[in-house]
């Protein structure tokens, strides 16, 4: 008996967590410059994936390859089950793209710009206006695109990226150049789109906003992916920082003797000790100190911030 498997049924039946974006061994060079080198990562369905890296790391080149705008030298990319190199037009039917510094025809109004792009999908005024409403641009639909502020252009760019009701959204530095209020509004929009079940790849070098919006991240440096995973797991992998204070104050030699087995590194800071621990061992540390006559007056654990993780990874890969 034959079983008809469509792309939709395949993705829901075969994998518990369907990988909407899959990149394998991707390479791209411009002359002697290796823009992307053996890059592999995947993004699960419904995930907001933070694609992090310093300027010039290869983020935009990767996104361009994901949209079929740039042909890779080697490697394989699939987006929503579509092989990008072989079917670039098909990918653009299932994915929406907000490029860095998007442009519009300045002599056309906001609505005319939207209608132009909508025409490629056979969509009309109603759909265009609905999306302008969604991104908060309905009140500006008759303004010339050349008169828009950066924040408005980003909103319009998001609206055009949503025209095909995409399963996957690729956002390249979407908040760069926006004022704090505009950036916060934009992040809220992204969260809203994520709640609708869309898979979002959020490329950025602004770490706090990635922490705020994304559940998992990949860090790219010099064209290579140096780390990928869920933010929580990455933090755990990186370990915990336990800050402890005792009465009487713990001398340095006792700190190293008693706490050395719990921490990779011990540092004294303003009368406290900061322990770099692979896991949260606060209870064991308290017991050990108590057993040796020290009362713990303060103990808490800190997860490293994404910024610390990022800097550590980037510096480590140099």
């Amino acid at each position: 008996m034959f079983l008809l498997i469509t792309r939709e049924s395949f993705k829901y039946c075969s994998f518990k967590a369907y990988r909407v974006i899959e990149v394998e061994e991707l390479c791209k060079s411009y002359g002697s410059l290796k823009a992307v080198s053996n890059l592999s990562f995947s993004v699960k369905e419904g995930e907001v994936f933070g694609f992090l890296g310093p300027n010039g790391a290869g983020k935009t080149t990767t996104l361009n390859m994901l949209m079929g705008l740039v042909v890779p030298d080697s490697g394989r990319i699939t987006v929503a089950g579509v092989e990008v190199v072989e079917h670039p037009l098909e990918v653009r039917r299932v994915a929406g793209y907000l490029p860095e510094n998007p442009g519009f025809y300045p002599w056309m109004s906001v609505l005319q710009n939207m209608l132009y792009f909508a025409d490629f999908y056979g969509l009309g005024r109603a759909e265009a206006e609905e999306l302008l409403e969604l991104v908060g641009m309905a009140g500006h639909s008759h303004r010339k695109a050349g008169e828009l502020s950066k924040g408005m252009r980003q909103r319009l760019a998001l609206a055009q990226a949503l025209l095909n009701d995409p399963e996957v959204l690729l956002l390249d530095e979407p908040t760069s150049g926006l004022d704090p209020e505009g950036a916060a509004e934009f992040r809220e929009l992204v969260r809203r789109l994520s709640r609708e079940g869309r898979t979002i790849l959020f490329s950025s070098h602004i770490l706090p906003e990635v922490t705020e919006v994304c559940r998992s991240v990949g860090i790219i440096h010099r064209g290579r992916l140096v780390v990928q995973g869920e933010l929580k797991k990455l933090s755990k992998m990186r370990g915990f920082r336990v800050v402890v204070e005792t009465q009487p104050p713990l001398p340095q030699e006792d700190a190293e003797r008693l706490l050395g087995r719990f921490a990779r590194r011990i540092e004294r800071r303003d009368g406290s000790y900061v322990l770099d621990c692979p896991e949260d061992t606060r209870a064991s540390i308290s017991r050990e100190l108590f057993r040796h006559g020290y009362a713990v007056t303060e103990i808490h654990a800190e997860s490293p911030s994404l910024e610390e993780l990022y800097l550590e990874v980037v510096r480590g890969s140099e």
Binding site: M67, L69, R92, R93, P99, N101, G103, F104, Y105, N164
Partner: peptide
């Protein structure tokens, strides 16, 4: 120069 080529090509336009 005005960034419209990339936006245009991100749609299914040959």
């Amino acid at each position: 120069e005005q960034g419209t080529l990339k936006v245009l090509l991100s749609h299914p336009v040959p």
